[in-house]
Structure formats: C-alpha cells, structure tokens
Amino acid sequence: MTPAISVAGLSRRYRGQLALDNVSFDIEPGSITGLLGRNGAGKTTFMRIVAGHEFASAGTVTVLGACPVENETVLRQMVFVREDQAYPDFRVRHAVQAASWFYPNWSHELAGALLEEFGLPPNRKVRKLSRGMRSALGIVIGLAARAEVTLFDEPYAGLDPVARQLFYDRLLAEYAEHPRTVLLSTHLIDEAAGLMERVMVIDRGRIVLDAAADDLRGAATSVSGPAIAVAEFTAGHPVWDRRRIASQESAVVAGALDETDRARAAALHLHLEPLTLQQLVVRAAGTPVAVPQERTSA
C-alpha cells in the first residue's frame, strides 16, 4: 500500500541551524498520528514541508505517492490547519465558503453543524474572533474538507475544554465515517492520547520516539513506597529515574511488568502507576540522553 505520507532523509536548514535533521518515516493511510515535541522542535516546519508551503533543504517527501510541491492533484486532497494561520479580511462564512470551493469532498452539512456547535458567528470578521474561536474556525475547515491527508498543527490553541472535547468527539466520529490520514501536533498530550494510534516525538529536528500508542501504554511504570522495598523491587529492572524523600522513594521502571512483578509489588506494599503518554514524551523530548541511566541518590 502506498504510504499516505512518506519522508526520507528530510532536512531543513535555516541560517546554519537545523530545524529538521535527516527525518525518515512512513505514515500508513487511514491512521491518526500524534506529532509531539517541544516548542521549536520542528513540528510546524515538518508540516509546512509536507503541505508544500516550505521547501526541504535535503531529502524527499511524498504525499499519496507523489511530491506535494505545486502538485494540484495531491494538494486537492490535503488540508493544513495551523495555529498561526493568517486570513484575508474575511468574515467567518467567507472563509468557510472559500474552503468549500477547493475541496472535492467538502461537506456543507458538517461545516454548518460544526459552526453552530462551536458557536461561531458566521458574519463576524475573522480578525475580530478570539484566539479560541479562530482555532475553532480552523477545525471546522479541517474537518469539513474531508481531505485524505489532514494536517492539524496545534489546532486548538486557546479553545476551552468543552470545545476541545467537541473536537475530539467530532474528529473520531468523522474518522470512523470517512477514514483519512490525520497528523496532529499538540501539547495537550494526555488529553489527546486516546485519539492517537501512533506517536512520534520530535526533538531538535530529530525523531526521538516513534511507536504505536498501544505499545507505549505501560512502557514504563512508576513504583513508589518505602525506599527499602523500592530498592528490593527494582533490583534487576532498568530504572530511569529515582526520587527520594526521607524514607519514601519513587522510581521509574522501564519495560512492561508481568504478573509476577505485580504480585511482588503488592506483597511489598508498593504503589504501581503506569507512566502517562505525556510523562513518556517529556522523558523522550526533555532529556539529552535517551539511554536508561541509573541515578544514585546521596
């Protein structure tokens, strides 16, 4: 099967600084992938290159089997919703109407329903919208376009929790009804974790983590309790991190735990808690060394 997005050796250099450093991966069609990473990690640059808005310094990108740059056939099947989108001096209904002209699968019903659900006034000027409402407008366009490749870059900056939940629900419903390839970048990782089938973490222009979301659930566990018990339990396990307060200790154990481990933990009166996706991402994107390391507490 042709990958929806295929990237090989992609680099982008800005005045001596590498925004993307030799990135390679494929994204299968009909999947939701989370693109996570810190500010300035290269997420937006990556999406701009995929959308053909920016040019690569090296490497190749293909979308639906062809180079997206100035390729009308590919571009017609791709929508890019970005946080910092600049709009012409349009009213909300103008922006939605204009979008409908360029997408063959555009759904007027869905656009109308979403506008209402997000409470977007059709006659308000886009520049008069609050940040959250502007994000909502991007979401309306991104979903109603029903484009085969849908790129969401921080789509819900400034959106309230109710509207965010609406976005998650609508995205999943749309995805189930009209499968497409979604690439979603976000900082609200745990909130969106349920959506993602695959997680990619980008840091300083490199992919530092790329795994199926299911594999990451339970990939590391936090073990806490009396220091002596924790030490006994963690012996023989790779440990990422240890924190100790008085006689209590908490350690992060890498790798999945089996039933025997759980039974031992229960016997030692230890508290087990799987690391959330967000904690894993923070670990992947926040530490310079990815190799598990022992840290001794003095």
């Binding site: 571009l75 600049a86 360029f102 997408y103």
Partner: peptide, 16 residues
C-alpha cells in the same frame, strides 16, 4: 500579500 497564506492552506498551488 494578504490573500496568499490562506489560499495555500486550502491546497491551492502557487501557480494556480
């Protein structure tokens, strides 16, 4: 200057 960015976001090529 003002109309281009949104048009590109909607999948219009520079050429078109």
């Amino acid at each position: 200057a003002r109309q281009l960015p949104f048009a590109l976001a909607l999948g219009v090529s520079r050429r078109s």
